[in-house]
Design a protein around this nucleic acid. Structure first.
Lengths: 150, 150
DNA sequence: GCCGCGAATGCAATATTATTGCATGAAAGT
DNA sequence: ACTTTCATGCAATAATATTGCATTCGCGGC
């Protein structure tokens, strides 16, 4: 993992739809060498996957919410159970067990408030283990990067 | 945007490294038609970009933190100023202005606690507008999807 | 300091894959 | 029923990725 690999990763994290030749040019390598490096980064798992990122607004998922959840019972079993429940929800983009006053933070991507309402009904009110939850609706997205800083 | 487009989007959101022929096969179209659809989704902006997703652990960014921030002064100017400050930080993966008791939520990706310490020093302590901030370290990542549910 | 070893490189040939022209067929409106 | 429009599949073509091979580079042992 030298300087060129890092350069490749930075480029691919922002745009992986480039041709190998274009990529090679940007890092100053021949296409074959460049390709071999990229494939090595893939094979070693440094590059986990290549995916398409959609525009949320254009597919009717313009509403984002961050919800922190406090569970009634904090044991491992209950925690796992709740996380599994959350994981199964399509609206849940990210689910984390965290330190601090609350136990879990969820990041949701929804169509509208009706969908949020239905989500809460399903995940928080039902026969679950939730003591309280605190909702923060996203007003403005200043940054939303999939890229890691190297 | 019919059923097939949605199928394509779902597939591409999980793996965009497939060949067009493989993709065509999965949705039951000829390669040429399939490609034309994908290109249309690109051109219309539904697919915003195609990117490589790295394994955080393998590039030394194994620590994740969620920080909610309350500003001293809540005006538009101050808000924008703080968000710009946050945006400029490489460790900040996501930055949101939100409703609720706090004003901003940051999601950080860091190497270790030292980096977190340095980050706080820089962003929260300095001559900034921060009244208080509340840190939640991520213990377990149950879900971390870039894909939107369609 | 020199030698030898393994890994990385670039070139060129080859194999894969994407892309386009074209003709056909289906659906919507007149 | 007729026209227009648009999506489709096929086949030819263009672009791109991939591999074999000879060369060079960097590095540790001698």
């Amino acid at each position: 993992m030298d300087r060129i690999d890092r350069k490749l990763l930075n480029l691919l994290q922002r745009d992986a739809s480039r041709t190998n030749a274009a990529l090679a040019d940007l890092v100053g390598l021949s296409p074959s060498t460049c390709l071999r490096r990229v494939r090595r980064l893939f094979a070693s798992g440094v590059i986990a996957k290549v995916v398409a990122i959609l525009d949320p607004a254009k597919v009717g998922k313009g509403l984002k919410a961050i919800v922190s959840v406090e569970l009634k019972s904090h044991g491992e079993q209950e925690m796992r159970h709740f996380l599994d429940l959350a994981k199964a929800e399509p609206a849940v983009a990210q689910a984390y067990a965290v330190t601090g006053e609350t136990d879990v933070v969820l990041i949701l991507r929804l169509a509208d408030m009706d969908e949020f309402d239905a989500f809460c009904e399903r995940v928080f009110r039902d026969r679950t283990n939730v003591a309280r939850f605190y909702t923060m609706l996203v007003i403005r997205t200043a940054k939303d990067e999939t890229a890691l800083a190297l």
